[in-house]
Structures are given as C-alpha cells and as structure tokens.
Simulated scan of single mutants.
Amino acid sequence: MTIKVAFLGLGSMGAPMAARLLAAGHPLTVWNRTAAKAEPLAARGAAVAATPADAVRGADAVITMLADPAAVTAVARSAGPQLRPGAHWIEMSTIGPDAVRDLAGLLPEGVTLVDAPVTGSVDKATAGELGILAGGPADGVAELLGHLGTVTRCGPLGSAAALKLVLNAALIGGVAVAAEALALADTLGVPAATAENALLGSALGGAAQRAFARDSSFHASLAAKDIALATATAPLPVLAAVLGHLRAHPDLASQDLARTADRIRADR
C-alpha cells in the first residue's frame, strides 16, 4: 500500500532518507528551507512545496528531519493546521523528549505522533540500513519506516528521543575522550599509529573509530546541540566539559565531529 508522505528537512540525512521512500513508490512531497536541496528529488519525481503547510496538505504521513527543537516547533506551527485527522507525524530529528512532548501539544486532535530518531550516518541512510528508535504508537507507520532501516520499539512517546540523547551523549563524549587519550599519547611519545591501533582494539574502540572517521557527516554544531540538550536535563560534568570543547571551535561547526577530535588532540 502506498502512503502519501510529506518529508520536511533535506539535510545530509534527510535527503537520502526521502530518496528511499520515493524509490519505494510512495508519493512524496518535500520541503526544505534551502529550496535548491530539493532539486535532485524533484528530478526523480518528488513534488516540491514552497512551505511546510503546503507540503503536509493531504499527507498520510509527515516526517521531520530537522536541525533542532526550534526548527521542529516552527515547522509544526506552520504545518499543523493543515493536517487531516488520521495522519501520522513521525519526528526523526534529535530533539530530546521534552521537545517531543511539546510537539504533541502543537498537533491537531486525531493526528498520531511517533518519535523515531535514527542511528547511523549518511551511508546507512542511503542504503536503508539506519537504526530507527520508535516511541509511541508506531504500528501504523512501521512498514513505512522499514524502508529506512530496522525499527526498534522503545516504549511510550518520548522514550525513543530520550534513548537517542543517551546514545549520542555516549558517542560524542567517547570521541572527546579518545581525542584526549591520543593527545596524552603524543605528549608521552607513544607513536601515533601504535596509540591509534591500541585504542581501536580497546574498550573505547567504537568511539576511537568514530574519532578517526573521514567519511561521515555529523556536524560539530549538531553534536554541540545534542550535548546541550543532555546537560540541560541532568548534572553531567564530563559532558559539560565536552560541550566546552565543541563550542571552543566555532570554525569547525559545519565540519564532521572527527575534525573537532583532531583539534582537541592538536591543542594539547
């Protein structure tokens, strides 16, 4: 069964995710603040809307993949009044559980909200191999989400957004620790290759691998946003220090997180 989808947000993750749904045969309308980013999808048959409200009109499912809570709120205030009863809003950004609950209050009666943030980078989005954390009543959209990756049910609304924040905090914090461990190795005269290989084989291996990545696209500004959400929720002194590192290098805001790790190491 085809589902009419409105996809709002065509950044590095949103564009390949929208392309997966279009390839699966779902009628697709897209919107992005920078309209030029919609052109490749338009060339493949997607309709392009001028506003979020235009995009969601008549949609069975709305997917948001946006930068932060403020962007999600702005889009919901614009688009919400155009939603029909029975529609599903699938929030796939990383915005935390409080923002998900705020979003629920902006949607009309009869619209079902699912929080479904993802794990994985652009390569996984392109291949349809994302990890999808689903909170709330996801039965009606499970098949649609299956085109994007593997769905893991997390519990009630907001539970997936909470778990995603936990996972990103652990990842980003681990990358910073790996970078500082390499800075220590440099200071102690441990050869770089030896230290890097040892870290990859250690309990910190996953974080070290991410710190060394050169083909990913998780902007440092988004990492800082995620850590800011986490540290606003609970007293997390280690992550507060990581946030300080991220904010200390605004010139790297639009570059991958691994570049911040490089800078942390270089600034020893």
Rank of each mutant, 00 (worst) to 15 (best):
Ala74Trp: 01
Thr152Lys: 12
Leu252Ser: 01
Gln255Arg: 14
Lys124Arg: 15
Ala134Val: 06
Trp89Met: 06
Glu39Tyr: 09
Ala241Leu: 14
Pro237Lys: 02
Ala67Leu: 13
Ser221Ala: 15
Ser121Pro: 03
Ala36His: 07
Ala43Gly: 14
Asp102Ile: 03
His249Ser: 00
Ala47Tyr: 10
Val166Cys: 13
Ile227Trp: 10
Thr119Pro: 06
Val72Arg: 04
Asp60Asn: 06
Ile3Ala: 07
Pro235Trp: 14
Leu22Thr: 08
His26Asn: 09
Ile172Pro: 00
Asp60Val: 14
Glu143Met: 11
Val166Gln: 02
Glu129Val: 11
Leu243Glu: 07
Pro40Arg: 10
Ala179Pro: 10
Arg77Tyr: 09
Gly136Gln: 11
Ala38His: 01
Pro237Glu: 02
Thr231Phe: 12
Leu145Lys: 10
Asp251Leu: 10
Ser78Leu: 06
Leu243Asp: 02
Ala76Met: 06
Glu109Asp: 15
Ala46Val: 13
Leu182Trp: 10
Val242Tyr: 07
Asn168Phe: 02
Asp262Ser: 14
Leu28Lys: 05
Asp102Ser: 09
Leu66Val: 12
Ser12Thr: 14
Gly80Gln: 01
Val62Lys: 08
Leu130Thr: 03
Arg33Glu: 04
Pro97Tyr: 06
Lys37Thr: 04
Ala211Leu: 03
Ala207Pro: 04
Gly25Leu: 02
Ala23Thr: 13
Thr29Phe: 00
Ala61Asp: 09
Val56Asn: 02
Gly158Tyr: 03
Val100Asp: 00
His147Val: 03
Pro69Met: 13
Arg33Val: 01
Thr260Asn: 05
Leu83Gly: 04
Gly45Trp: 04
Leu103His: 09
Ala232Leu: 12
Gly149Met: 08
Ser78Met: 08
Lys164Thr: 11
Arg33Met: 12
Asn168Tyr: 01
Arg153Gly: 07
Arg265Tyr: 04
Leu257Met: 11
Pro85Trp: 00
Ala234Gly: 10
Asp54Gln: 13
Pro250Ile: 15
Asp102Gly: 08
Ala207Leu: 08
Gly136Glu: 05
Cys154Gln: 09
Leu167Pro: 05
Pro81Ser: 10
Ala61Val: 15
Ala195Phe: 00
Met17Pro: 00
Leu199Gln: 00
Pro237Trp: 04
Ala213His: 12
Asp186Lys: 09
Ala59Arg: 03
Lys164Cys: 10
Leu222Asn: 00
Thr34Ser: 15
Ala178Pro: 09
Ile264Met: 13
Trp89Tyr: 10
Lys4Trp: 12
Asp262Glu: 15
Ile3Val: 15
Gly14Trp: 03
Asp226Leu: 07
Gly136Thr: 06
Glu109Val: 15
Pro156Ser: 14
Ala169Tyr: 02
Ala179Gly: 05
Ala253Phe: 07
Ala46Cys: 06
Arg265Cys: 02
Asn32Tyr: 08
Gly189Ser: 12
Leu188Tyr: 13
